[in-house]
Design a protein around this nucleic acid. Structure first.
Lengths: 195, 195
DNA sequence: GTCTATAACAGGATAGAC
DNA sequence: GTCTATCCTGTTATAGAC
């Protein structure tokens, strides 16, 4: 739909971010031009610069917002004491959150190398912060004998790698329901670190 | 070192592929120009077209060669009968092969979306073929009671995801030796599918 | 806030000389 | 087989009109 001149500051900004997220996820940051993003929104390329300083900021803002959403949502989960229950809750949370935001997750991983160095450091710090949440669960569980793992840092990365893989193959219309996937992965996570 | 006019067909081809692999892995296919690849090799951009039809073929040939190497190397491994030993051998093979080829592995995963549709199908078929090798091990082990997994296809993808994650963090000069990493991951793989 | 127009430059690929 | 030169297209970002 063609757009004519007018004022839409309150909706154009979000639409630009949504279009950029969709296009970056599908084709990659470097392969998507500002003109193409503008076209998807229905404005001319020059108008984008009312909302973002440049293309790099557009990418960084998407990634930062995603990582901050992730940490905020995790911290908003109910607290529990038992390490096994905390691990179960983390597993379930991770799967759901990531499957609900496939585009943002994909970008946050694939486009790290297209971030300017300072921006890269910011995103990496947020990622480490998320990993630390899981490692704390494992460490507590090792302390009370719930878990047996040789190295909590490596186990953390192994579990996150396993869970992240779901995003590469799961489709809502596929053979398995979300609940079935959660159950299968929880079984494997639990056994992988079992005491 | 500057190059002058001359004939070097037997070494320039491999050098182009090596430079492209390095640059694609570091910056991404879309972000690397033919001029930059040529610069890394020490020739002018036009000379590249004596060795590759176009940029897309350069990417595809790298990915296809990597996947075919992977399958050939796996099939060259000693055969064993016991499912647990076969899974152990697969785990060890996967870790070693992938850590020895970090650039090729990274490209084979990250640049799938930059392949033309026909090329994409070819690479995907090779990838599925590799996954099928692991699934066959799990299925045999479920059959004789060695393993207990609810869904061999999902378990295959979960294990490969877990193992692939190593490439994102392992560094030869880091805290752990390759042998230690292999041991830790084998422990987790074994327990995750234990009967 | 969006438009049109444009500056300034980089991209893939090819032609023809050597 | 490699070079230089070039075609043609596309890129980010900005300027000024409305």
């Amino acid at each position: 739909m063609a757009r004519t001149t007018g004022s839409h500051s309150d909706i154009t900004g979000p639409r630009i971010r949504a279009a950029a997220q969709d296009l970056f996820a599908r084709h990659g940051y470097a392969a998507v031009s500002m003109r193409r993003i503008a076209g998807a929104v229905g404005v001319q390329a020059g108008a984008l610069y009312n909302y973002t300083r440049d293309k790099q900021s557009l990418l960084f803002d998407l990634m930062q917002a995603h990582m901050e959403d992730l940490l905020a949502a995790l911290d908003a989960e109910p607290r529990q004491a038992d390490p096994l229950e905390r691990l179960r809750a983390f597993t379930r949370f991770h799967i759901r959150f990531h499957l609900e935001r496939q585009d943002a997750v994909f970008i946050a991983y694939m486009e790290l190398r297209n971030l300017d160095p300072g921006n890269f450091e910011t995103i990496e710090a947020l990622r480490r912060s998320y990993e630390d949440r899981l490692e704390a669960i494992l460490r507590d569980g090792v302390g009370d004998g719930t878990f047996t793992v040789a190295d909590t840092k490596v186990a953390t990365l192994a579990l996150i790698g396993m869970l992240n893989g779901i995003n590469t193959w799961y489709r809502a219309e596929g053979r398995l329901t979300l609940e079935q996937v959660e159950q299968i992965y929880w079984d494997m996570v639990r056994r992988a670190v079992a005491g």
